[in-house]
């Protein structure tokens, strides 16, 4: 497949880096200001080197990337809420040209799922978005394999930063602010951690899951989610939980009818009580009880692994 990669953050760079290994060709790359286009295929290493040392990926106009001759648009720009722009327009343009789209950007499928699906219905292209939920963990692929109509719920830990903070608080008996500062020093938490610790990121992933599970019966956006973060959890709550063999995790739940994210009490031995930045999801099936999947939920190569798995699932274009 010929890939056009829009967005050159950690995930975009890893896609460019790993595409050849998967047998794909990168014909266009754009970051927010610059672009590199070559119908004969770009030298990924050279593009990444230029990005690292010069801050640009090439001399072309970012608009040229959307007009390039590619098979799959890999949309990995930062997640935006509300109108989910510019991600949504990138997708619309690719679908209008009957091209496939693979997303790591959560915005379009969390905030405008119905619009994305409507555009897809009018196109020969297909939209896949494994990388938007749980990084490298094959959650949406598993849901698609089993059939979303045979899955009653999905629940799990879908934000590594919040899970890291709760795990450290429980293990070290430290308070939230202390552990958060440590996480920021380690690069696990961002300077503004609110997206993670207030539950927004986990909620977006659950909204996407609920949209898939609802099978078109209902559309969810972030506004439909009941969301509570972990900023109010003191160390004393984790101590009391541990005394009773429990722990607290930021758990997201998605069903065809609801989305809920909040700190929850669960047994220390629960498969959902993963440690550190790890993610986990439990898929409740109609005929086979629960399926637990865990792994790395974030990171460049991890998320690119999910992106390239999606690319591999796509049929060739006519």
């Amino acid at each position: 497949m010929r890939l056009a990669v829009v967005g050159c953050g950690a995930v975009g760079r890893s896609v460019v880096d790993l595409a050849a290994e998967y047998g794909h060709e990168v014909v266009a790359v754009a970051d927010s200001r610059s672009a590199a286009v070559d119908p004969a295929g770009l030298d990924g290493a050279a593009v990444l080197d230029r990005k690292e040392h010069k801050g640009v990926v090439g001399d072309d106009d970012p608009d040229d990337v959307l007009a390039a001759e590619y098979d799959v648009l890999v949309e990995v720009t930062p997640t935006t809420l509300g109108d989910a722009e510019p991600g949504f327009s990138h997708i619309a343009r690719a679908l209008d040209r009957d091209r496939h789209v693979v997303l790591a950007n959560k915005g379009p499928v969390a905030e405008r799922y119905g619009d994305v699906r409507a555009r897809e219905a009018d196109s020969a292209g297909i939209v896949l978005f494994e990388a938007t939920v749980g990084g490298a963990i094959p959650i949406l692929g598993t849901v698609a394999d089993y059939g979303p109509e045979r899955i009653s719920a999905a629940r799990g830990v879908l934000n590594g930063t919040a899970n890291f903070v709760l795990t450290r608080m429980a293990a070290e008996g430290l308070d939230y602010e202390h552990v958060l500062a440590e996480a920021q020093d380690m690069g696990v938490a961002e300077a503004d951690p609110s997206f993670d610790v207030e539950g927004t990121d986990a909620a977006l992933k659950c909204v996407i899951l609920a949209n898939v599970l609802a099978c078109g019966e209902r559309e969810f956006t972030l506004a439909d989610a009941e969301v509570e973060g972990i900023t109010q959890i003191p160390g004393s709550a984790l101590d009391l939980a541990a005394e009773a063999g429990r722990t607290v995790r930021l758990v997201g739940e998605a069903t065809p009818e609801s989305v809920r994210v909040g700190p929850r009490l669960l047994p220390e031995t629960s498969p959902l009580a993963v440690s550190g930045t790890r993610n986990v999801v439990q898929i409740e099936t109609t005929h086979a009880d629960g399926i637990d999947l865990s792994g790395r939920g974030a990171g460049g190569p991890e998320t690119a692994t999910a992106v390239l798995a999606d690319v591999g699932r796509l049929p060739p274009l006519e």
Partner: peptide, 11 residues
């Protein structure tokens, strides 16, 4: 007050 509710896993 904040409630930390138990998670009901499975059915």
């Amino acid at each position: 007050l904040h409630v930390v509710e138990p998670l009901t896993e499975g059915r």
